[in-house]
Design a binder for these strands. Structure first.
Lengths: 341, 341
DNA sequence: ACCATGACTGCAAGCGTTTCCACAGGTCAG
DNA sequence: CTGACCTGTGGAAACGCTTGCAGTCATGGT
């Protein structure tokens, strides 16, 4: 293992100059820089991150905390964050904490706080005030995506308003018997999102003077297969059926469409389905949905952090904790139409 | 930020003793240990990872290199690796290099080699001999999953044999007009898998004396939507149709089933479809497939590395580079049957 | 001809741990 | 009673860089 010392010797320069040359700092003559670079290349020298982090205080490493890596939204965010960080020369440390709160705590205590991360991105994770304070106390900027993080910057979509919009789309088509497929209660603990979307749905229904039937408020785990099972239960209930379903995610909307097909229901003729996300698979099913660019949200979060870090806001100046709304769009495809006569 | 020095002062011990006490080393009296621990807790002390890594040479950090995070196989592996590492107190650094080889190189040079990783897991990535040698030269164990890594340990399934098995399943049912849906040529660069699976298919066909029609050898990008489009093309060709399709992944098999439904073809009555993976969604479609436990493969890879690291095989003793085959099982559901009369 | 200026460079002091080593007491067999 | 040993402990040397500081040497204005 060649160290910087070896490079210095080989190049006939001092350690200090080599360090400056290789890290692209100013005040190094072109000649020295070239000398250092060739020597480093010849020796296959790569600086030790630990040593340089220790000495400089910057780690070039951002932590990403996710509840899942399988669900579309999260893997999309991950993709956006990852690409942005890689291009910027930053490492991405992933904490896939799962839905269980158990692991969460240990992640926070044992990992996040160990000053090895320059910043943290938390997705759909409601951190307690204490937890946020701990992180900010260490002078680590935090950005939350899709979750409300008091005191930290946040990127999110207007979940409540968009749910209203989706519901209104169905109402305007003339539907009155509308079901809502939301997230499982268990998912509502950390990730308050299901509740918020559900509230938007209820508000829109109330505003339109429509009644909400409890038996048409069903839940699933945000996966296609989970929603498929729930939707089969909904559609097979034997009593009157809804003419439209608003699913809290595209994956769940797709599960609903698959269930409808199994029952011989034509979408949208017999059943309208609207989702929310912008899943790539939506096109195959002609799914009407609200497009939120999850990948873009991840990329934006990463960019924001990098700017903060590069701006050198060296310590704790968390800047103004901005709360920005990410743009979305209603994409009308062929899964929604007027209700059957 | 409290340092170990502060803890030592508060506990009335020396830095050395505190360090030993907190990291659970021997030769510390019970009293001193308790003293150190309470002092550390009171000060909210957390050791600096960089400093301790620098001093001890162990980073407690494993790198995972993936070509994608969206496709089922990869996110499943990721999940397995992540859970195992988190439980062991290790960090996971994720390199989502994408399908483009461009980013790959930079990841290798700029990231992997910076001695900040204790080990590397590479999924479906064919590293060149040089690249492997570089890593091994740094004394970092590597485990490859699903890809042939000369010189490194590997976990994989018998892709060629399993493809044969899948194809034979169709042949034994009486099918003779069998199509194969493989990965896009672009994906075959790094990730030779499509070619290997295709070879298995061809071998089985040849052994059975069946002819392989070039126009029934189609490809897609391993996603449902991509396979859906390709399968529509296949099924809509107007000429004679295949009676069965072997798709190189479950996601592609599902895309095929969706396309078949669009054409009014009943699965399995009019068209048998077999996949390969064990995707959770397979159940919804009654998909016959070969179950490979991707999550388990990831977990196993992580466990193997942890053992190697903990065994203290301190440097370069790469152990015997084992190449182990992960167990799989043929899961027969309802997407395959005898061909139409 | 002289000094201020600025571009380069090297020395050495950290960065915050881990760990080698020496050393102080106490235990125990001979 | 003594030397061999073991358990705990603290001092201090790494670990491999970054960076403040001071010093060297041309340069150019006056």
């Amino acid at each position: 293992m060649a160290g910087i010392k070896d490079v210095a010797d080989r190049a006939g320069l001092s350690i200090a100059t080599v360090s400056r040359a290789l890290s692209g700092k100013a005040n190094v003559s072109a000649k020295s820089r070239k000398l250092a670079k060739t020597a480093a290349a010849e020796l296959g020298f790569v600086p030790s991150y630990h040593a340089s982090s220790l000495a400089s205080g910057r780690n070039h490493n951002v932590g990403l905390v996710l509840p899942s890596v399988h669900r579309w939204y999260f893997s999309s965010v991950l993709e956006g964050v990852s690409a942005t960080l890689l291009d910027a020369g930053y490492d991405l440390t992933l904490y896939n904490v799962g839905d269980q709160a158990v692991r969460r705590e240990s992640v926070l205590n044992d990992f996040l706080l160990r000053k090895r991360l320059d910043a943290v991105i938390a997705v759909a994770l409601v951190l307690t005030d204490d937890e946020i304070q701990q992180l900010l106390a260490i002078h680590r900027p935090i950005v939350g995506i899709g979750g409300a993080l008091a005191g930290a910057s946040t990127i999110r979509i207007n979940d409540s308003g968009l749910s209203r919009m989706a519901t209104n789309h169905l109402i305007q088509l003339g539907h009155t018997r509308i079901a809502h497929l939301t997230g499982d209660p268990a998912l509502n603990q950390d990730f308050k999102l299901p509740g918020i979307r559900q509230a938007g749905f209820e508000a829109a229904m109330k505003d339109a003077g429509l009644s909400i039937r409890p038996e048409w408020q069903i839940s699933a785990d945000f996966t296609i297969q989970g929603a498929y099972a729930s939707a089969r239960r909904l559609l097979g209930m034997g009593t009157e059926r809804p003419t439209a379903v608003f699913a809290a995610s595209d994956e769940m909307a797709i599960g609903t469409i698959l269930a409808a097909r199994d029952f011989g229901l034509r979408v949208p003729h017999d059943l309208s389905v609207i989702g929310m996300d912008g899943h790539e698979l939506g096109e195959v099913f002609g799914l009407t949905t609200i497009n939120q660019d999850a990948r873009g949200q991840g990329a934006l979060a990463a960019r924001l952090l990098l700017e903060t870090l590069d701006a050198g806001t060296p310590a704790g100046n968390d800047g103004a904790a901005t709360d920005r709304e990410y743009p979305t769009e209603l994409v009308i495809r062929t899964s929604t139409a007027v209700p059957p006569a």
